[in-house]
């Protein structure tokens, strides 16, 4: 569905070249659900904008839905759906009108566009608000309208750029449900970008971790966690002496990475839930009293931290809008 070869994009910022995407080689098969995960400014959105023909690559090639993104723009455009970071519906428009005109943009007949719009309005639970002015809709309703617009022509391939940014937890859950449903019903290939770890974790079958414009990992979420981060066991004790003895014992029993801070012992290991009971029995035999025991499953943040030495959250929780905006301004100025 997607094949890129050395895809690269530079922006000129104050006469300096910023390499937003550096030589990306990517292959996505039909029916896959892929998440591009990375901190703000990693090059996720820029990649998506190249794949959706919004900006041309500086070098390299990309074939999307069987067509070249530079030479065959309209072929690519007619085959993909795109749900951007903003709201696709004009604020002075009515939702249903926007859906119909979106259908007309893709060459649907008036009748087809109208019936397809009604279908999506029903599927996305927008019946009550579809004939209201878009500016009066809530954030969640607008987002559902965006999804409906992205699906109007039943694309084989759907791109979503930060689909859940700015949504409350309930609407995020709703969105994830919609995407899952879309795949179950239509076998649509989906590529989304996110900087929400849990989103990549729970939705995607394949996570591509991007940093500084490069792919640094590409695997299933569970494999990534297995390879790049273990489970965490945290034990606490009443006395530092107990903690020290427990740490020694843990090293012998599990042979894993063990660290002790005061009365706390932290263990990084695979399969912690299975190992913990055995460890506790051993500690009890040693006469060490454990005050509390906790198992933490690895998160995508641990994966990212292990891969880059930085936390994914360091960039803050701000959406990437500002990042993209800066690039584009400078590009125009350049």
């Amino acid at each position: 569905m997607i094949r890129t070869n050395g895809l690269t994009r530079h922006f000129t910022v104050k006469k300096e070249t910023v390499e937003a995407v550096r030589g990306l080689d990517l292959e996505v098969q039909q029916g896959e659900l892929v998440a591009l995960l990375g901190p703000n400014g990693a090059g996720k959105s820029t990649t998506l904008r190249m794949l959706t023909t919004l900006i041309p690559p500086t070098s390299g090639t990309a074939e999307v839905a069987g067509h070249d993104v530079v030479r065959e723009q309209s072929e690519v455009r007619s085959r993909i759906g795109y749900i951007g970071q903003g709201n696709g519906a004009g604020h002075t428009q009515r939702g249903r009108d926007e859906l119909i005109s979106q259908g007309r943009c893709y060459g649907l007949s008036r009748k087809e566009a109208r019936s397809r719009a009604s279908e999506l309005i029903a599927a996305l639970d927008l019946e009550a608000v579809a004939d209201r002015t878009v500016s009066t809709l809530s954030g969640g309703q607008r987002r559902r309208l965006d999804i409906a617009m992205g699906l109007i022509h039943a694309p084989d391939l759907l791109f979503l750029d930060e689909p859940s940014t700015g949504l409350d937890p309930q609407n995020r859950a709703n969105l994830q449900e919609q995407i899952a449903k879309l795949r179950a019903e239509y076998a649509t290939t989906i590529v989304l970008t996110t900087h929400y770890l849990d989103e990549a974790d729970s939705m995607a079958e394949r996570v591509i971790v991007v940093d500084h414009g490069r792919v640094i990992a590409d695997d299933t979420p569970s494999r990534l966690k297995e390879v790049h981060a273990g489970d965490g066991i945290t034990l606490t004790f009443d006395h530092e002496d107990d903690a020290r003895r427990a740490a020694d014992r843990s090293r012998r029993v599990i042979g894993a990475e063990v660290s002790q801070f005061g009365t706390t012992v932290e263990i990084r290991v695979l399969g912690a839930p299975q190992l913990l009971p055995e460890l506790l029995v051993n500690l009890a035999a040693d006469g060490v009293t454990v005050t509390s025991a906790q198992v933490a499953r690895p998160t995508m943040d641990d994966v990212f931290l292990n891969l880059t030495g930085r936390s994914l959250r360091e960039g803050g929780t701000e959406p990437t809008d500002t990042e993209t905006t800066v690039h584009e301004n400078q590009e125009i100025a350049a």
Binding site: T53, L54, R77, S78, G84, G86, G90, H91, Q102
Partner: peptide, 17 residues
């Protein structure tokens, strides 16, 4: 100008229009 900011224009740029 407003639609450039909200994303409505971008959405239309991705269609085959």
């Amino acid at each position: 100008l407003f639609e450039l900011q909200t994303g409505a224009h971008e959405r239309m740029l991705v269609t085959p229009l």
